[in-house]
């Protein structure tokens, strides 16, 4: 198989990160950082006297590679 193009690499990179985060896995990219999805449970917040119920969420977190 011939060497993949830059577009192929970027597309595969995006797909892999999406897939892994979508299944709850963290992904480490050497020289760049680590992508992960952290869970935020449902919470009640109070803003200006109004109580609001925020649904649970998964939040994408990126930790840059400290060695890069």
């Amino acid at each position: 198989m011939e060497s993949p193009s830059a577009e192929d690499i970027i597309e595969a990179f995006t797909d892999v990160v999406q897939d892994q985060l979508g299944t709850g896995n963290a992904v480490e990219v050497p020289g760049l950082g680590t992508f992960s999805a952290e869970h935020r449970p449902s919470e009640v917040h109070e803003e200006e006297g109004v109580r609001r119920l925020a649904p649970p969420r998964n939040q994408v977190v990126f930790a840059p590679d400290p060695d890069a």
Binding site: Q18, L21, L32, G33, L53, N58, Q59, F62, P64
Partner: peptide, 22 residues
Amino acid sequence: LAFRPAPTLRRRVNRPYEGLSA
């Protein structure tokens, strides 16, 4: 280096909670 996820990615990781709002 900071990263801001695209809406597509945010939706992807929030499939179980999609459509829920405060």
